[in-house]
Design a protein around this nucleic acid. Structure first.
Lengths: 152, 152
DNA sequence: TCTAATTGTGGGGATTTGTGGATAATTGTG
DNA sequence: CACAATTATCCACAAATCCCCACAATTAGA
């Protein structure tokens, strides 16, 4: 499972070097084959090892194409999904369309989130963290059931 | 289970020597592998032996990435989680980002908290203790159900 | 009180990693 | 079929990281 954040940079060709601590497990899990798509709630990209992505695809097929919200989710996720193959140096190429969605320029953050990575522009990530921290400081009167009993 | 507080110092490279009374059990439990992340309510860091951390990760996987509050918790905890491996001298390296979050400079407190440690700057720790003591002096009109029945 | 052992601290050097650029291969197009 | 444009592979340098050794300080024991 992936965790942690790392700063790295997109080069002129749009290549992104995966931090070496993740490379070994990616080669084992999926021989470097990944799928990148957009996040529908935040200005970031989601990067899945192929097996993890296939689970998502399965779930998506169970959604009804009659329900507009579910249909929309399918269209957004599948429509933006791009195959990414790690090269011999542990780098992947991010398609221009995707780069645009997350406003990725030179300075990038890659964030491990268990079954996937999130890709953020450095500025957007810092803004997000600040916003998240601020939200956590407030008294959450209506915490979800799952969070009520969450102990760290 | 860990308890007690100890003062120690970060060296120039950001390394922290774990007090020797904890080292043996850490080597047994997890061969010195730990995970450090931020505390979302307080300016301190949380340091878990790997097995303890994995329990947290399991709980995090049950949360929905559609619910904003649950997603926020995942992002903050996982996004700031760093692997820490004790070196031959019983030291761990604290990443710069984490140091910054808890405002850690030279003088540090490490606090045993059962399944984890807390890392505080010495100043912040003393302020926190004072604040906690003051809070306990007040009449707590709205004690939680669990505290109502708590006897020491 | 002196010695020995353990713990805390500092620093040098080898290795790995991230990044940029050059060359080779492949694809698409006229 | 040839040429251009894009993509992949390889190489090299610089920077950061890790690993090991050495010394100081403290504690414990004789």
């Amino acid at each position: 499972m992936f965790r942690g954040a790392a700063a790295l940079s997109l080069d002129d060709k749009g290549r992104l070097a995966i931090p070496s601590k993740y490379r070994k497990s990616l080669l084992l899990d999926c021989e470097g084959q990944m799928v990148c798509t957009i996040d529908i709630k935040q200005p970031c990209l989601l990067l899945y090892p192929l097996p993890q992505w296939q689970l998502i695809e399965q779930k998506l097929t169970t959604l009804s194409s009659m329900n507009p919200a579910e249909r929309r989710l399918q269209r957004l996720l599948l429509g933006h999904a791009e195959d990414c193959q790690m090269d011999k140096n542990g780098r992947i190429l991010i398609a221009p369309t995707l780069r645009q969605h997350a406003d990725l320029s030179k300075k990038i953050m890659i964030i491990g989130q268990l079954n996937k990575f999130e890709l953020w522009s450095e500025d957007a990530w810092q803004a997000q963290v600040a916003a998240d921290m601020a939200a956590e400081q407030e008294d959450d009167l209506a915490l979800s059931d799952r969070l009520q009993d969450f102990s760290l």
